[in-house]
Design a protein around this nucleic acid. Sequence first.
DNA 1: GAGTAGTATCGACATCTGTCAATATCAGAG
DNA 2: CTCTGATATTGACAGATGTCGATACTACTC
Lengths: 113, 113
Amino acid sequence: MPRLLPVVDSISACCAGALASPLSRNDADELAVLLKAVADPVRLQLLSIIRGAEGNEACVCDLTDVVALSQPTVSHHLKVLTDAGLLTRERRGSWAWFTLVPARLADVASIFD
Amino acid sequence: MPRLLPVVDSISACCAGALASPLSRNDADELAVLLKAVADPVRLQLLSIIRGAEGNEACVCDLTDVVALSQPTVSHHLKVLTDAGLLTRERRGSWAWFTLVPARLADVASIFD
DNA sequence: GAGTAGTATCGACATCTGTCAATATCAGAG
DNA sequence: CTCTGATATTGACAGATGTCGATACTACTC
């Protein structure tokens, strides 16, 4: 089976001043994917917690308690944020640590500048 | 029946640097309402079109054609954006004109700064 | 007044989304 | 290898959301 090439930066052909000129439906769809990732109260809480933590990182075990939701639900939200490029995931022993990607957060802000 | 007082600015006890410290669920809910308003491809298109138009305003009749959706659907999206404070509505004769509220758009960006 | 054009609301429907319990996967300890 | 704790995935379900057709409302014209 062929390996897939890394396409990490394909996420970011976007964002800055996106609203300055009329958007095509396709471009709007892409932007909406990123915005939907942050347009959820639980995910906003998770982002704010991670941002306020040491090294902009936190593990699932800490997060579950704070938002008072089941572990699978928290895991789901973290996956959405990671898929959107807002977090990166790293395993350290049994724990999964999630780190903020500040540049990606800045991408969101730049849409509306 | 008593008149209601204008409460236009009650919308904006929010936003700037909201993610800097851990959000309560209530605060996160409020932010999510605003973000959900912009996290839709059609509404992003509408915002971009209005922003690119003369005087930051457009009427429904113009918008319906561009996004290729039914008039009730466009009207619905405009209502969502207006309820979120991103647009203001004004009737001129039979037409309804919607004007961008740049400060409210800046509010969205400021969440992620 | 009646007619007409633009817009808003309503009701219905299919799809998407957040949530959980159950289960599977992963990694370290013994 | 087995056990145990942490995380991810699956399946199911209720509620939210986007869309449309039908209809109601609004304002101008005649």
